[in-house]
Design a binder for these strands. Structure first.
Lengths: 192, 192
DNA sequence: TAGCCTAGAGAACGACCGTTCTCGGCGCTA
DNA sequence: TAGCGCCGAGAACGGTCGTTCTCTAGGCTA
C-alpha cells in the first residue's frame, strides 16, 4: 500500500467528485456513482474519506486552492494596482466562457447544503471573506477606500450568479466596466 | 367541498412550503413534514398539487409575485427616476435585516435543483430576466444607457448573495452606494 | 507449496423519500 | 334509521441513499 499511490487515487477521486458534484449537484450524486466514475472500490473510497460530508469538504478545499491560484495568476498580469483589480474580472470572463460553467461552486453548495450543514456553510463563508480580504489588499495598494472592496466583491459575486442563471458570459464584461467606474470614481474622490 | 375553502388551504400549504423550503432547503423537507406543519392530510396535499415538483413551481410563482409587489412598492416611493432606482436597494436592505433572511429563494433553488430540473431552472431565469427588464425601464426613464441595467442587476444579485453568506445586511448599503455611483457616472457621461 | 493478509466486487442494511392504497368513521340523503 | 360516499390517518410500496459486511480471489512470505 504505497502512500504515493494512495495520494494519486485521492486526487483522482477528488477531481471526479468535483466534476460530478458541480455538474449535477451534490445530493444528486451518490457514492456509488462516484465509485463507478472514479474506478475505485467502495471500500477504498471510505478508507480515503470517512464520509460523504468529509469528501465534500475536501472538494471545497481543493476548489478554494484552485480559485486562489486563478486569482493570483490574474493579478500577476497587471502592471498597476487598477489593472490588477480589473484582471480579476477578465479571469471571470474566461471562466464563464467555459462549456461546463454552472456558477460558483461555493454559492451552489451553500444553497444546497448551507441550511443543514453548518460546517459547509462556514467553509463557504471563509472562502468569500478571504476573497474580499484579497480585494481589500489590492485596493489599499491603489490607495482606494476600504468600502470599495465590498463594492467590488458584490460585483464579482453578482457576475457569477448572473452568468450562471442567464447562461451568458457577458455579465463579466458588465461587471468589469462597472468595477472600472467604481475604482476611478473612488480614486478621483480621494485625489481631490 | 367549497371551492373557497380549497383556495384557503392551497394558500396555507403554499405559505408553509415556502417557509420550510426557504429555511431548510427543498430536498430536506419531505411531503410528510409539510403535511404535519400545514395540518393537511397527505391525500388532500396530492389533490391540491399533483407532485412535489409542481408544488415547488407554485411556491416559486408565489414568491415571484411577492417580489414584484415589493419592487413596485419601493419604486413607487421615489420622486425621481434616480430615487426610484435606489429605492430598490433600500428595499433589499430591509429584506436582509429580517431574521430569517437566507438569500434569494431563486438562487438557492437554482443551486439545489437547477441541474436536474430544467423547468425550475427556467422559472429562475424568467424571474431574473423580468427583474432586469424592470430595471431597464427605470433606467430608460432616467435617460441612462441600457448597459446600466446589467450593472445594476449584477449589484442587486451580488448584494443578495453576499448578505446571505456573510450573514450581515451591510451589503445592501454598499450596493446602494455603488449603484448611485454608477447611475451618476452614466448620466454625467450622457449629459456631456 | 501452504497459509495469511489484503483488496475488490457487490450484497445487505437501515433509513428516508415521494407517492399510492387501505381502512375506519363521519355526515348527508331517502 | 339505513345506506352511501367522502375524508383523514397512516400503513404500504418501490426506489434510492450512505454506510457496512461478506465473500472470494490473488499475491506475498516462509
Amino acid at each position: 500500500m504505497p502512500a504515493q499511490a494512495d495520494e494519486a487515487i485521492r486526487e483522482k477521486v477528488l477531481a471526479v467528485a468535483d466534476r460530478l458534484y458541480y455538474s449535477r449537484g451534490i445530493q444528486a450524486v451518490g457514492m456509488d456513482a462516484l465509485r463507478a466514475e472514479a474506478g475505485v472500490s467502495l471500500k477504498r473510497l471510505y478508507q480515503l474519506f470517512p464520509s460523504k460530508e468529509s469528501l465534500v469538504e475536501e472538494v471545497l478545499h481543493r476548489r478554494r486552492q484552485i480559485w486562489n491560484q486563478l486569482v493570483e495568476a490574474a493579478v500577476a498580469t497587471g502592471e498597476t494596482p487598477r489593472a490588477r483589480l480589473l484582471a480579476v474580472y477578465d479571469m471571470l470572463a474566461r471562466w464563464f466562457d467555459e462549456d461546463d460553467f454552472r456558477g460558483c461552486v461555493f454559492i451552489n453548495t451553500f444553497g444546497e447544503l448551507g441550511a443543514s450543514t453548518p460546517r459547509i456553510a462556514d467553509l463557504v463563508r471563509e472562502h468569500k471573506a478571504q476573497f474580499q480580504a484579497r480585494l481589500a489588499e489590492l485596493i489599499a495598494e491603489a490607495g482606494g477606500p476600504a468600502s470599495l472592496a465590498f463594492q467590488l466583491a458584490i460585483l464579482a459575486e453578482g457576475a457569477q450568479t448572473t452568468a450562471a442563471i442567464a447562461g451568458t458570459s457577458e455579465a463579466a464584461g458588465h461587471a468589469r466596466t462597472a468595477a472600472a467606474t467604481l475604482i476611478d470614481s473612488a480614486l478621483a474622490e480621494r485625489a481631490q
